[in-house]
Design a protein around this nucleic acid. Structure first.
Length: 326
DNA sequence: CTCATTTGACCTTC
DNA sequence: GAAGGTCAAATGAG
């Protein structure tokens, strides 16, 4: 991983804020870790001033969210965050077909008119998860389904429902796995730029089992409501707001990338030490044994790939994931 | 009536 | 030309 300079011209406040948020997140994660190591004490000791796991998770998520916001705004303001975050060249005037539909009939334009109106987003970041549920924290709208060569099951195509009102470009592809038809391979393409993602911390406080959502959801997006959905229905109906992982996932990817270049001192190395531990804890939590009482346990294997030519090769978010490996 | 899904056609990429 | 990705009219559900 090469180290470029994500903060081109000394936006030190941005940098500091990102660092601050991450350090906070780390502290909360550390607290959470200690709580997880002795959960009984927590449940017993109600007078304890230490925050509950839910609170900690919320804080951690807030920290990430803040960081993401800063990074996103940095991007928009012209700063380049090294990775090609959705710098899709498909972003053109044709992107919103309804915006220029000035009262004219919605008939299909002639083929010539539509030429070049969409492109495969080769340069957007993609990552894949394997899950029993297609749920996540965003509302998706299915826009297509396609039989895939050598695949037993068709692939479903979803876009963010905010595509038109907020210009969110996130899409995902869902394909049932051949080996295990109960599992879905979900490929996320592009970042959610809609606001939905960031309201999540309010949802997380729902009184649902801690285990449930940590098992059902990616480790970095524990703000889902843990709601289980019928799998087939999940494929055919994508209307319910679901657990989200995109931005977080990317954030981690981005941040790990960027953090390596954030400082020239050694301070950053410790930054991830606890995250590695946290990852271990979480992979333990995510083990099917612990969540086996939940019929919809998700064994999740993450991988994020960048399809751009200069991309990250591959980073796995399974139990063996190690930030130092990046 | 509004919004989501279905599905065949169209488009891009390889 | 084949395969995969997207569009949008038709249709259905709430």
């Amino acid at each position: 991983m090469e180290t470029t300079h994500p903060w081109p011209e000394g936006p030190s406040t941005t940098r500091n804020k990102v660092i601050k948020e991450l350090v906070e997140g780390r502290d909360f994660a550390t607290q959470l870790k200690s709580i997880l190591h002795k959960p009984l004490e927590i449940t017993r000791d109600h007078a304890s001033p230490s925050p509950s796991p839910h609170e900690l998770v919320s804080k951690i998520l807030r920290s990430f969210t803040e960081t993401l916001s800063v990074l996103a705004s940095s991007c928009e303001s012209g700063e380049v965050i090294h990775q090609n975050l959705a710098v899709s060249h498909a972003d053109s005037h044709c992107d919103d077909p309804r915006s220029d539909d000035s009262g004219e009939s919605r008939k299909r334009p002639t083929p010539k008119d539509r030429r070049g109106c969409y492109k495969r987003r080769k340069t957007t970041q993609t990552w894949t998860t394997v899950s029993r549920t297609t749920d996540d924290d965003h509302a998706w709208r299915k826009y297509g389904q396609k039989e895939i060569l050598n695949a037993k099951h068709p692939r479903s195509y979803f876009r963010c429902t905010r595509k038109y009102d907020q210009g969110c470009r996130a899409t995902k592809q869902v394909q049932r796995m051949e080996e295990d038809p109960q599992m879905y391979q979900i490929t996320y393409i592009g970042i959610h730029t809609c606001k939905d993602t960031l309201k999540a911390p309010q949802i997380i406080m729902e009184p649902d089992p801690w285990e449930t959502y940590i098992v059902s959801n990616p480790p970095d997006t524990m703000w889902g409501n843990g709601k289980q959905a019928d799998h087939d229905q999940a494929l055919s109906s994508s209307t319910t707001p679901k657990i989200k992982q995109e931005s977080k996932e990317e954030a981690l990817s981005d941040l790990t990338d960027n953090l390596s270049s954030l400082g020239t001192d050694n301070n950053n190395s410790y930054l991830w030490t606890d995250f590695k531990d946290f990852d271990l804890v979480e992979s333990a939590i995510m083990s099917p044994k612990l969540g086996s009482d939940n019929g919809d346990v998700v064994s999740t294997m993450y991988s994020c790939t960048e399809t751009a030519s200069h991309g990250l090769d591959l980073c796995h978010f399974d139990g063996d994931f190690n930030f130092d490996d990046i």
